[in-house]
């Protein structure tokens, strides 16, 4: 028996909005520690890893480890029917091939339940090694989204270079070139507006902007985004989810041939 009750149902709504266009079908894994997902996009260039820890749920019952295959587009359609302030409960009986989403309005005067068929998805988990990053950026998530959106109107790849001066996002295309430099800025009145650069050493990597733009769909989840870079390995773009977990996007770099 599985029953997960999330008072801040809007978090699950936002999670689905941020991954449904990147990944079509995925397995949600439920265990005593929490509700998680790991999936690659269809071209195996990006990977998303989601974790919602069990303590973040008001009620978390998971009798045994279970993996539920879902079509994320259909799941997003059902979650769109939940109000932003609704409590969302996810239920599945042992051995059943469906999952039920229950939406309760805050005043408990409206209760809806949506049942969705589960799918068999044979996806293998990838081992993600803990890496020492050459540069870690923490910046306002809206700012990062704006930069990715603006640069993608000029070119389709971005070179992200981190030096002690700051971080530079560069692109070029048919109509010309664009460079955006963000300097470390910790003299802000609200901590979430700071741009922090931890850079043990300079690094420069090239990525496809369309994936970064897809990752920024997670912007509503967190005021800040953490971008961890190291030469020749995938970048990690992480959005924290309230006090309960995170959504991490990994993107393989474009390598000079």
């Amino acid at each position: 028996m599985l029953e997960l009750r999330l008072v801040q149902g809007s978090l699950l709504k936002k999670v689905l909005e941020s991954i449904k266009d990147l990944v079509n079908d995925a397995n949600f894994d439920c265990s005593a520690t929490g509700f998680s997902l790991q999936a690659m996009d269809s071209s195996h260039v990006a990977l998303v890893a989601l974790l919602l820890r069990s303590e973040g749920f008001e009620h978390y019952r998971c009798d045994r480890n279970i993996s539920m295959g879902m079509n994320l587009g259909n799941m997003a359609k059902m979650l769109k029917c939940a109000g932003n302030d609704d409590i969302i409960t996810l239920k599945a009986d042992d051995g059943s091939d469906t999952v039920t989403f229950m939406f309760e309005s805050p005043t408990q005067d409206k209760i809806a339940d949506f049942e969705m068929r589960l799918m068999d998805i044979d996806s293998e988990h990838l081992g993600i090694p803990e890496a020492e990053y050459h540069a870690i950026l923490i910046m306002p998530s809206a700012e990062f989204a704006r930069i990715c959106k603006d640069l993608s109107s000029i070119g389709d790849t971005v070179v992200i270079s981190v030096t002690k001066e700051g971080v530079k996002f560069s692109t070029r295309g048919d109509i010309g070139t664009a460079n955006v430099v963000c300097r470390q800025n910790t003299t802000v009145d609200k901590p979430e507006e700071a741009t922090v650069i931890e850079m043990p050493e300079p690094v420069s990597l090239t990525f496809a902007l369309r994936y970064l733009n897809s990752f920024t769909k997670a912007t509503p989840l967190s005021n800040t985004v953490t971008i961890s870079l190291s030469s020749e390995i995938p970048v990690v773009v992480e959005y924290k989810i309230a006090e309960m977990g995170y959504i991490r996007f990994y993107l393989a770099p474009k390598i000079e041939e």
């Binding site: 260039v45 393989a252 390598i255």
Partner: peptide
């Protein structure tokens, strides 16, 4: 030219 690499060449299947 920049060749797009794949995530599977960095993270091994468990």
């Amino acid at each position: 030219v920049n060749q797009q690499s794949q995530i599977t060449s960095f993270f091994s299947k468990m």
